[in-house]
């Protein structure tokens, strides 16, 4: 999903042409295109360093974790996953929209890590370390564009998701 696609789907929903305002959005989106391509390239260059340094930092903060257990396969998989999150962020920079990150990486993320037995708190800590390293490695303008996507992943992990419980008066509460 990109901004352009969103505009088109909204317009088609109402059988109309895109409004001048929507077309202005597309124009300014295209105008910042080169800058966003540059950002994506920078992020790709620094991805490896962010992952390597973030991992070291994570192990200092949280030494007892599957990726630090000495099992090289687990270490490799953890670093690979974190690299993938950075790759998804580079897609988002190009699309101007968080949809690639959400659709590819966030939907089902908690279930996945729960299933393979990695504590979510550790993943959360890991991502916070990556974020800190990313801030250190990027300049201010780059960080301003990139960090919100890190925050989005962190929030996905940190905020409670379903099942929701509601207070439906006296009696037994059931998950909705």
């Amino acid at each position: 999903m990109s901004i352009v696609k969103q505009v088109i789907l909204n317009a088609d929903e109402e059988l109309r042409y895109p409004t001048p305002g929507e077309l202005r959005t597309i124009r300014s989106f295209c105008k910042t295109g080169e800058e966003r391509i540059r950002l994506a390239r920078t992020l790709e260059e620094k991805a490896q360093a962010i992952v390597d340094r973030g991992t070291q930092k994570f192990w200092q903060v949280c030494p007892k974790t599957p990726s630090n257990s000495g099992d090289r396969r687990k270490t490799g998989a953890a670093k690979r996953d974190m690299g993938w999150y950075i790759r998804l962020i580079s897609y988002c920079l190009l699309a101007g929209d968080d949809r690639p990150l959400r659709e590819i990486g966030l939907v089902g993320m908690k279930e996945l890590y729960t299933n393979i037995g990695i504590p979510l708190a550790n993943i959360l800590q890991y991502l916070r370390c990556l974020k800190a390293e990313a801030i250190a490695l990027l300049d201010e303008a780059e960080a301003a564009a990139i960090i919100p996507y890190f925050d989005e992943i962190i929030q996905e992990l940190a905020l409670p998701g379903p099942p929701y419980y509601m207070n439906d008066g006296p009696g037994e509460s059931e998950p909705v």
């Binding site: 202005r24 989106f29 295209c30």
Partner: peptide, 8 residues
């Protein structure tokens, strides 16, 4: 991106 203006 470069042709965005033209398209819009």
């Amino acid at each position: 991106f470069r042709s965005g203006d033209l398209r819009a």
